[in-house]
């Protein structure tokens, strides 16, 4: 009878033995792709970044810049040659600049010949029309719960109204915050804690998976996330956006000014889809879900060549009066 227990434990023991095994994975092609990334903007010098991708299992390879490419940009049929300029953005890519500032409505094509590759990279886009969005109103509400010594939660809301032209457009909204530095005498926002920004748009078609997009701000102004939407439902109509900021404010806050810049970008369809898919990919963490396929409009390579047109307005900063130790002493 005592041996009977082995009957139960043996299968379980076997079940636990070595359930993972490395696959001998040899895909047909592990060679890097040539990457071209550019977001030409109205009234801005066009810059194209060139690099090479890395095979996903090659951990030591961080990609390399492509410095020997020959690039040609045509704006409404007029060609311009690209000039290699060393990259200062810290990433493994090489920048090429063109002595042209395209205007809204211009049609652009780019062609890049890279030594060692069989076919040139080509792509096309258009600089969208300037966003015809009218800021008609805004309201700032503030609330704060915290203490001088421990810091606390801070939030405010910003509302603004927009008017969209009577055509299908793609937009991106980003909020920038001016950084006013700081020292012991003039405390600033705690940069260790990222702030959260929630967008609400009552009836707009938000072409991301979540209606409320989270935006993390840092002291550089903005990074990564932004709110993408199309004007499909409020075409030629006013629409109100509400942006709610929630932040952890560091100890010692007395007075803080936070001028805000609301930046509205009209996006070409190419750039819209690229931003949308890269944003989805960065948020993707499902073990069993379908990986996100990032949009690419580069023939002969990967990346994006998508035009944009930026308009922005400045919203007045919410002010916070100096408060004493017993003001809203939520934490004490």
């Amino acid at each position: 009878m005592t041996r009977l227990k082995y009957f139960f434990f043996l299968p379980l023991a076997i079940l636990m033995v070595g359930c993972t095994e490395v696959i001998d994975f040899k895909p047909d092609n592990v060679e890097p792709y040539t990457v071209l990334v550019s977001r030409p903007q109205n009234d801005e010098v066009v810059t194209v970044q060139m690099s090479r991708s890395r095979f996903f299992l090659d951990n030591d390879n961080y990609g390399t810049g492509v410095s020997d490419a020959s690039l040609t940009l045509t704006v409404n049929g007029t060609p311009y040659r690209g000039v290699y300029t060393p990259s200062f953005n810290g990433y493994a890519s090489c920048g090429y600049r063109f002595a042209v500032r395209p205007q809204a409505g211009d049609t652009l094509t780019v062609s890049a010949v890279v030594p060692g590759t069989e076919q040139p990279l080509t792509a096309g886009t258009r600089i969208p029309l300037t966003p015809n969005l009218t800021i008609t109103d805004y309201v700032v509400d503030t609330s704060y719960y915290g203490s001088y010594y421990y810091g606390g939660d801070f939030s405010f809301r910003l509302r603004f109204k927009v008017r969209s032209p009577d055509e299908q457009c793609y937009y991106s909204v980003r909020i920038r915050r001016a950084y006013n530095g700081g020292d012991d005498e003039e405390p600033v926002w705690d940069t260790d804690y990222l702030e959260e920004v929630y967008f609400e748009c009552n009836d707009a078609v938000v072409n991301s998976l979540d209606i409320a997009s989270n935006i993390n701000l840092d002291n550089e102004g903005f990074w990564g996330n932004e709110m993408l939407f199309s004007n499909e439902l409020f075409r030629n109509d006013e629409h109100e956006f509400t942006v709610t900021f929630n932040a952890w404010v560091n100890q010692g806050l007395r007075v803080a000014e936070m001028p805000l810049y609301v930046e509205i970008r009209a996006l070409s369809p190419e750039l819209y889809r690229y931003i949308q898919t890269t944003s989805q990919q960065s948020d993707f963490d499902e073990l069993f879900g379908e990986p996100v396929q990032v949009y690419c409009n580069i023939s002969g390579g990967i990346g994006v060549f998508g035009g944009q047109n930026v308009a922005s307005f400045r919203a007045p900063a919410p002010r916070f009066e100096k408060f004493s130790n017993n003001t809203n002493n939520y934490f004490e």
């Binding site: 895909p27 592990v30 890097p32 792709y33 990457v35 990334v37 977001r39 970044q49 690099s51 090479r52 991708s53 890395r54 095979f55 996903f56 961080y62 990609g63 990259s87 953005n89 990433y91 493994a92 890519s93 920048g95 990074w223 990564g224 890269t278 990919q281 960065s282 379908e290 990986p291 996100v292 396929q293 990032v294 690419c296 990967i302 990346g303």
Partner: peptide
């Protein structure tokens, strides 16, 4: 579905997996 190539978007700094 496997993303077999990866690159860094030099504008945003985001690492992009290419499927």
């Amino acid at each position: 579905t496997l993303a077999m190539q990866e690159y860094v978007d030099p504008v945003t700094g985001q690492e992009v997996s290419y499927v």
